[in-house]
Amino acid sequence: MPDVILQSCITCPECGHSQTDTMPTNACQWFYDCAGCGKVLAPRSGDCCVYCSYGTVPCPPMQQDRSCCR
């Protein structure tokens, strides 16, 4: 099994601000405060978390083909 990537760069769909963060390994992150414009991001319909919606790398549970927190 390949290693899980823990770093993902989230890009805000409102202002375009990007920031790289370390994803939690034991839970999905449903909300994210944009440091650029202050908007609170939530997952798009059908996605389990903000990293799967707006990040460069899906969350660790999705990378491991495990069920997510939804």
Rank of each mutant, 00 (worst) to 15 (best):
C15T: 05
M23V: 07
P24M: 12
E14Y: 14
L41G: 03
R70L: 08
G16F: 11
M23P: 05
Q64P: 06
M1T: 07
I10T: 07
P2L: 06
C12H: 06
P2K: 08
T11Y: 03
G55S: 12
M62S: 15
G46M: 04
P43K: 09
P2H: 07
D3K: 10
C34E: 04
R44V: 03
D21P: 00
P58M: 05
G36Y: 00
S8K: 10
C12R: 13
P13Y: 12
I10N: 05
C59Q: 10
S18V: 02
C9Y: 07
I10S: 02
V4Q: 03
Q64V: 01
G55P: 07
R70E: 05
C69A: 13
C48Y: 05
V40P: 00
D47P: 06
N26R: 10
W30D: 07
D33V: 10
S53H: 10
P60Q: 12
Q19R: 15
T56C: 11
V40Y: 03
M1H: 05
P60E: 11
T20K: 08
T11H: 02
C12D: 01
C49N: 07
S67R: 05
C69R: 15
S18E: 12
C9P: 00
R70Y: 06
V40R: 15
Q63N: 13
R66N: 04
P58W: 08
C68F: 00
V4F: 15
C59E: 09
S45I: 00
Q7M: 06
P61H: 07
Y32K: 11
A27G: 03
K39T: 12
Y32E: 04
T25M: 12
I10M: 07
D3R: 07
Y54H: 09
Y54R: 04
